[in-house]
Simulated scan of single mutants.
Amino acid sequence: MSTPAVPDEPIDLQIADVLHAVSFPANKDEIVDIARDAGASNELLAILDGLPEQDYADVDAVTRLIGSNYGPGVSV
């Protein structure tokens, strides 16, 4: 799924749009690839690339880690 407006959105909306396009369960590399294909910003790609190498069962599993690593300014 391509989302051309993704790079122009605030980071929390980028995260929500990208994760909505992921078929879970998914591993970190699949999530990063989908974000890259959607045209996500370098900031979002760096955040996702910083996730631990593991399988994620659902959106909540990813957003919990993003929120705990990047604080309350980044939430979905």
Rank of each mutant, 00 (worst) to 15 (best):
17 D>C: 09
69 N>C: 07
9 E>D: 02
36 R>Y: 10
13 L>W: 07
56 Y>H: 05
61 A>K: 04
32 V>I: 13
16 A>S: 13
1 M>W: 05
13 L>Y: 10
25 P>W: 04
38 A>C: 15
60 D>Q: 11
41 S>D: 09
62 V>E: 00
9 E>K: 12
72 P>V: 12
57 A>M: 06
44 L>K: 02
63 T>Q: 01
10 P>C: 03
8 D>V: 00
7 P>H: 11
69 N>G: 15
43 E>A: 14
25 P>N: 09
53 E>I: 08
50 G>N: 14
4 P>Y: 06
46 A>Q: 08
5 A>H: 10
52 P>Q: 12
69 N>W: 00
55 D>P: 01
62 V>R: 01
76 V>Q: 08
6 V>R: 06
65 L>D: 11
47 I>Q: 03
62 V>Y: 00
50 G>K: 09
42 N>V: 04
63 T>V: 15
21 A>T: 13
17 D>Q: 14
73 G>Y: 03
17 D>K: 15
11 I>K: 07
10 P>T: 10
55 D>A: 07
53 E>N: 15
59 V>A: 01
5 A>V: 13
23 S>N: 11
41 S>A: 10
69 N>F: 03
17 D>N: 14
18 V>D: 06
48 L>I: 04
58 D>N: 15
59 V>Y: 11
5 A>M: 06
6 V>Q: 00
30 E>C: 05
34 I>M: 05
23 S>L: 09
68 S>L: 07
26 A>Q: 08
4 P>H: 07
66 I>M: 09
5 A>W: 07
41 S>W: 03
10 P>R: 12
20 H>P: 00
34 I>T: 13
33 D>M: 07
32 V>A: 10
55 D>V: 14
18 V>P: 00
59 V>D: 03
